[in-house]
């Protein structure tokens, strides 16, 4: 137990160092990056911006961490975000006076149910039909955006129901409300996976499903619920996305989010080959991605160009995780040391 803890601690060190380095780099390029101001009762500044925008990716990455731990992948989350946004938007309705068509709570729960069902669909395909996770979730990736567009009739729906805006735009004690949601989901997930045996079961399924089955773990159900949970996380994420801009755009909501979420998990130290997972690592990974994006804006590089930077970060991180690359580097250094 203690050895596991120390391992997880050493594992989270690297993403933290990366995040720290990134923040320091900002100090160099944009000295006022860390400035915080209080305006209208809440904090303003680049750091708060990062927190405000990171919540949807963090939520996705929590669900994605568990999926990846089972040696799976869920590429449908971006589309499910769009479905969630679309569902909640049509249920609240675009009434200009701000009177929701259905009570806001009902609309939110309904949207979450739809997304959980989407997750169950993925889970069923992976666990029962035994499809490869990429393909199983590819189906909803393709169809999900279509469903969202059919929901919203291919239009952008604008919302005016004020209370709904709290989710993505509200502040509590100067910190964005969405961060509390993330903290809540993270805490529950952490307790449920690390204070019970569930986390170990998930890792066992990821390392060797056959062995897990023989040791009495119901691998099928673990897979099923992991994908269901990922769908739910995507649903919550979609609500926040929708609330932040107070509109639902089936075409663009959650676009490329699945990639950011996967990237966050990988940056956080969870291997795509499944097995050991690091929830807090993924959270730091999400922070790294958002900090990168915000820094790119702060430096003044056009937003559209930022994927180039992201690409190189991904390649660099992958290379650092590759054993072959590390041994090769070590060999180069050893050789140099010998010749010098």
């Amino acid at each position: 137990m203690t050895s596991w803890r120390s391992l997880s601690r050493t594992k989270i060190v690297w993403p933290l160092i990366a995040l720290g380095a990134l923040l320091l780099l900002n100090l160099f390029f944009t000295p006022h990056f860390f400035r915080l101001e209080i305006k209208q009762g809440h904090l303003y500044g680049n750091l708060i911006d990062i927190l405000k925008n990171v919540a949807p990716i963090m939520l996705l990455s929590i669900g994605m961490t568990l999926v990846i731990a089972t040696h799976g992948i869920d590429i449908s989350v971006g589309s499910v975000v769009a479905v969630s946004a679309g569902a909640v938007a049509i249920l609240i309705g675009g009434d200009l006076a701000g009177h929701p068509k259905y009570p806001i709570a009902v609309a939110m729960i309904a949207a979450l149910l739809v997304c959980t069902a989407a997750g169950m669909w993925n889970g069923m395909l992976v666990s029962r039909v035994r499809m490869q996770p990429i393909i199983a979730t590819l189906i909803l990736f393709v169809a999900g955006r279509g469903i969202a567009m059919v929901f919203t009739n291919a239009m952008v729906i604008w919302l005016y129901a004020k209370p709904f805006a709290i989710l993505g735009q509200g502040y509590v004690l100067g910190i964005p409300f969405s961060i509390y949601i993330v903290a809540f989901v993270l805490l529950l997930t952490f307790i449920f996976t690390r204070r019970t045996a569930v986390g170990m079961f998930i890792e066992a399924v990821g390392i060797n499903p056959t062995a897990a089955r023989f040791s009495g773990i119901n691998a099928k159900n673990i897979l099923f619920w992991v994908y269901t949970f990922s769908g739910l996380c995507a649903g919550i994420s979609g609500l926040i996305v929708c609330s932040t801009v107070m509109s639902a755009d089936g075409n663009n909501a959650g676009n490329l989010y699945e990639l950011d979420a996967i990237l966050a998990v990988v940056l956080g130290g969870t291997s795509l080959n499944g097995g050991k997972f690091y929830l807090f690592g993924s959270i730091v990974g999400a922070l790294i991605i958002q900090t990168l994006t915000t820094s790119i804006y702060a430096i003044g590089i056009p937003a559209d160009v930022s994927p180039v930077v992201k690409a190189f970060v991904v390649w660099a991180v992958c290379l650092m995780q590759s054993e072959r690359f590390r041994t090769r580097i070590v060999r180069v250094f050893v050789r140099k040391g010998l010749s010098a």
Binding site: L259, N273, P307, A311, F312, V314, W315
Partner: peptide, 17 residues
């Protein structure tokens, strides 16, 4: 020995950017 999914994903980002 890197996962093709992630490497080409980065390729997607790169080309788009």
């Amino acid at each position: 020995d890197l996962p093709p999914f992630i490497i080409t994903l980065a390729g997607l980002y790169l080309a788009r950017g």
